[in-house]
Design a binder for these strands. Sequence first.
DNA 1: ATAAAATCTCAAGCGCACTTGAGATCAAGC
DNA 2: GCTTGATCTCAAGTGCGCTTGAGATTTTAT
Lengths: 149, 149
Amino acid sequence: MALLSIGELAARTGLSVPAIRHYEAMGLITPLRNAGGHRRYARADIRRLSFVRIAQGLGFPLARLAEVLAGLPQGRPPGREDWARISTGLRAEIDERIARLEALRDKLDGCIGCGCLSLDKCALWNPGDVAARHGAGPRWLMGDRHEPG
Amino acid sequence: MALLSIGELAARTGLSVPAIRHYEAMGLITPLRNAGGHRRYARADIRRLSFVRIAQGLGFPLARLAEVLAGLPQGRPPGREDWARISTGLRAEIDERIARLEALRDKLDGCIGCGCLSLDKCALWNPGDVAARHGAGPRWLMGDRHEPG
DNA sequence: ATAAAATCTCAAGCGCACTTGAGATCAAGC
DNA sequence: GCTTGATCTCAAGTGCGCTTGAGATTTTAT
């Protein structure tokens, strides 16, 4: 049993079968096919999907992960250095996301505690008074998460 | 200018006008209406929407925020204690989210660094070997974020 | 050999958080 | 008074990340 069926891969990763097919459509994984046209996965693909789930849980959209995973070797199974390379690429972004979350939490604490409660004016809640600029888009404070497209 | 029009509120909060109307439909805010049927907002509503944006940025769905905001007084403008009360309610959930993110980051670091690379078996990546249980749903590691519904 | 289970390919639907558009009404400036 | 801009409602569309369903084919077990 060198290669896995999609059902086996689903069982190993905890993903649903349609979800795995969806990831394929999004370019995250590219299985082989057997004579009958059924998908056949290498063991390394379990790792690949585990990575996807974790990175996705950290807030990365599938499209970004497709880019990152494109950095893994094709043909040869990826080794330690390969995973380390693409992971370090994400580390900076991960740290940034966590930092942003912590900053927001602290702002929340700080402003509730400070008693000013003028959230529309308070520098903590509205750093740089962006709201007064031109009221264009809600980009302040939020970073790029779930930006209205 | 005791009350704000929706356009003014949009300018003050950085939100779009349709977004504010959407929040109303979701039960997050309930403006008064003038004689002509136009929405009129109190100053405290700026705070209310600022709170919504921040909490939303922290990962809370609008439905949850509607619940939380229902804890604010009606008629009387909310005071420091009101905001403090509903914020502390969220604090635990916020801390939990941050902790989860940090844990995932550390797991990522740890397993890339540890050299085992057997993500499907490694206790760090797959605590409790949940994948082998019955392959039902992808609930391990992820918490409740963006759970397939 | 055959019945049952797994897989295949489309296509459509869903939940969330909005955006966009149409057509009508209200408000404000000149 | 009249035009212009803001606002109204309702409906439909968007992007993401899948799920669900239909109908056909392949694989596996007996």
